[in-house]
Computed example of a mutant assay.
Amino acid sequence: MTAPLPESELVGPTVEPAGTDGRRASSATWRAFRRMPLGMVSLGILLVLILISILAPLLAPYPASYGTDVLSPPNPTNWFGTDALGRDVFAEVIWGTQQSVLVAVAASVIAILFGTLVAVVGAYVPKLDTVISVIVDLTLSLPVLPLMILVAALAGPSTSTLILVVAAFSWPEVTRLVRSQALTVVKLPYIDAARLMTRNHLWILGRHVVPAVTPVIVVSVVVTASRAVLSAAGLSFLGLGDPTTWSWGRILYEAQQSGAMVSAWWLTLFPSLAILALVLSATLLSIAYNDARNPRNHER
């Protein structure tokens, strides 16, 4: 008589949920990231800037239309000095942080959503991928800054125009980054198995493809936000920003218009340091995150 099979063979091998590996990889990435001082410092700087933008009304009053002390250097009363109209530069930088972070976040969200959608759909549908790749390559080859200036000048200066212009010229870079990863993902065996199980392509994209390219999307968010800040500051410096709202670029623009950019060093130093802090911390954060994703760093 044949001996009964062991219970383990009757039940079969234990299969872990599909999301288990993803959660383990995320946990390992976070542990590796916490061991990187440069990444943690960059994350802290970004969080401080976001906190400043939220608490701007509590940190400084909205800059007045004019003041009595004109072009006063930094002092205990005015920490960052005053501008050509006697306004407090510290208050301008604080409220400029709110505007700059708003433009960066809003433009990045629009560019990431549209760029990721185009990249994932293009990778999943080969016939569309050829057309999308041509459009992306053509857009990336165009001179971005002159086109941004032209569009912003024609549309008129406003915060919404600034956000849409920056987003419109940022999504091709996102598409290129996400598409390279998505093209690899759609060729994996489990995507073929998902196609055999269901004809709901939106479910396949949302359940399998998008989660697989999420790490690239995270990097794209940080990189796009830093570029959005630079683009917005550049347009505002050229007088194409929202004239009713303070931003770091507007501070530089008004310093240049008043002719005090050279003589009053504090008018350019503090907004420039704010731009540098946000862009540099975002760039270093993306580098640290990429290093943390490396499986070799998970074993340390």
Rank of each mutant, 00 (worst) to 15 (best):
R195L: 10
A25K: 01
R23T: 04
L205W: 01
E16C: 04
V229S: 04
T139M: 15
A18F: 00
V209Q: 00
L230W: 12
L196R: 13
P271F: 01
L240I: 02
V165G: 08
T68I: 04
T97R: 05
R34C: 10
P189Q: 13
L47A: 10
P243V: 10
A255P: 03
L138E: 01
T14K: 11
I45V: 14
P126K: 14
T82G: 03
A288D: 00
A91C: 02
G19Y: 14
V209F: 11
V41S: 11
A119Y: 03
M261D: 03
A228Y: 13
Q181P: 13
D291S: 07
S170I: 13
P6G: 10
G241S: 11
L240C: 02
I52R: 01
S108N: 14
M36Y: 06
V151Q: 05
V93C: 04
P271Y: 06
M197A: 13
R199M: 12
V222D: 11
A274F: 14
D291W: 09
A282P: 01
S236F: 00
S170Y: 05
G241H: 05
F237K: 02
P189H: 09
L55W: 08
R300W: 02
P76S: 08
T175C: 12
V144C: 07
R300L: 15
F90C: 02
V178E: 10
T68A: 13
P73L: 08
V185M: 11
L205T: 08
P295T: 00
L183H: 05
A32E: 00
P271N: 00
L235S: 09
S236C: 03
V213W: 12
T139F: 05
R300F: 08
G122E: 06
Y66K: 14
I191E: 05
L276P: 01
T184W: 13
V70H: 01
N200C: 07
T2A: 12
T159C: 08
A32P: 09
L102V: 09
T175Q: 06
F237A: 04
T198F: 08
S42I: 04
S258K: 13
V144D: 00
L147T: 03
Y124L: 07
S263H: 02
I149D: 01
V186D: 05
Q257D: 06
L154D: 08
L240Q: 07
W79L: 06
A277M: 10
G19C: 05
L252Q: 03
S8M: 06
A152F: 11
S26V: 07
L205F: 05
V165I: 09
R35P: 12
L46I: 02
W30D: 07
V216T: 15
A153T: 13
L252Y: 02
A260V: 15
S100P: 06
R179T: 12
A277F: 07
